[in-house]
Design a protein around this nucleic acid. Structure first.
Lengths: 161, 161
DNA sequence: CGGTTACGGATACTTCGTATCCTTAAACCA
DNA sequence: TGGTTTAAGGATACGAAGTATCCGTAACCG
């Protein structure tokens, strides 16, 4: 049970975009070089974010992506679900119905007890991710990364977009 | 990001074993037929549970598996981790080190901010699973499943083990 | 001794994530 | 206007991991 590496890429791209001046676009090529990941494949992740309304893209020279909303309006869950999907990590196959002792016409008022627990855990996972916004991440990074490096990053990225 | 179907099987097998009289073993073949899943493959999941000390197996006729501990001493997390593993759902590849602006010799006092959030969510997931014991599941099933059917199940399973 | 079972290794099959390529359409620029 | 740059998205190949089966071995029982 492992998340796609695109999830990591998408989150780091968002982290980078938070630090950009508003209205500035970052090209896929530049984001790919900055993170040293394959451009074409990263593009798929960014397309997912775009479709989800998290970022917006524009064409032509100086084109690329930027955040489509305020960083305080974008949660980790938004990003994760955009690339990983919204389906639970646990898929209930209703194995209980295979029980040979079970009357054929028996109905199930409630979902399977095992699935209920697993879905509850999945909900807790999502709740945690929903509780952290991109603005929170920006603040954390501010204390994690030296201001000098942050400035360099911004300069490097904007110079090529 | 989907859990193995063996996780579902393992949990349902545990649910069945909770209802058995102590010291009685259930054969893999019988558990497989009861759930209509491939016997050889289910066997792998049960082996994982056995190695984790959750169930214990014995050889020969009338052999099979039974719980190795009291149901109150076995959590969902124990079962899930036994078959799915203990590694986090998020793998941090330290993508931040690929940053071309970054000084080569720079050290990271803390783990990546993105990873910290993702791991926190993973911890919340595991915490929920750790909070539910097999004895809780048994109690839930008691109210979910008609006593009549539960008795039939036990009879069916023991008659073939 | 012969049959039954857990156990574990080896091996295919299938699905899905990873990655690349190519075409199209839109935006910009000369 | 025409050429360049970029996102968008379809098609395809590759590899890893999950799924599934088969076989040989060792232990247990009648």
């Amino acid at each position: 049970m492992l998340l796609r590496n695109q999830v990591e890429w998408a989150l780091h791209c968002c982290a980078v975009m938070v630090g950009m001046p508003a209205e500035r676009f970052l090209a896929t090529k530049v984001l790919a070089e900055f993170h040293e990941v394959p451009k074409e494949y990263l593009s798929k992740a960014l397309q997912s974010l775009s479709q989800a309304g998290i970022i917006e893209g524009t064409l032509g020279p100086n084109g690329g992506y930027r955040l489509a909303k305020a960083p305080s309006e974008i949660t980790f869950l938004d990003v994760v679900e955009a690339v990983e999907g919204r389906t639970s990590s646990f898929a209930c196959t209703e194995i209980r119905r295979n029980n040979p002792c079970r009357p054929t016409r028996m109905r199930d008022p409630k979902p399977c007890a095992v699935a209920r627990v697993m879905w509850e855990a999945d909900a807790a996972w999502r709740k945690t991710l929903r509780g952290v916004r991109l603005s929170d991440l920006a603040k954390t990074l501010e204390s994690d990364i030296p201001a000098e490096l942050a400035a360099k990053n911004t300069e490097w990225l904007l110079a090529r977009s």
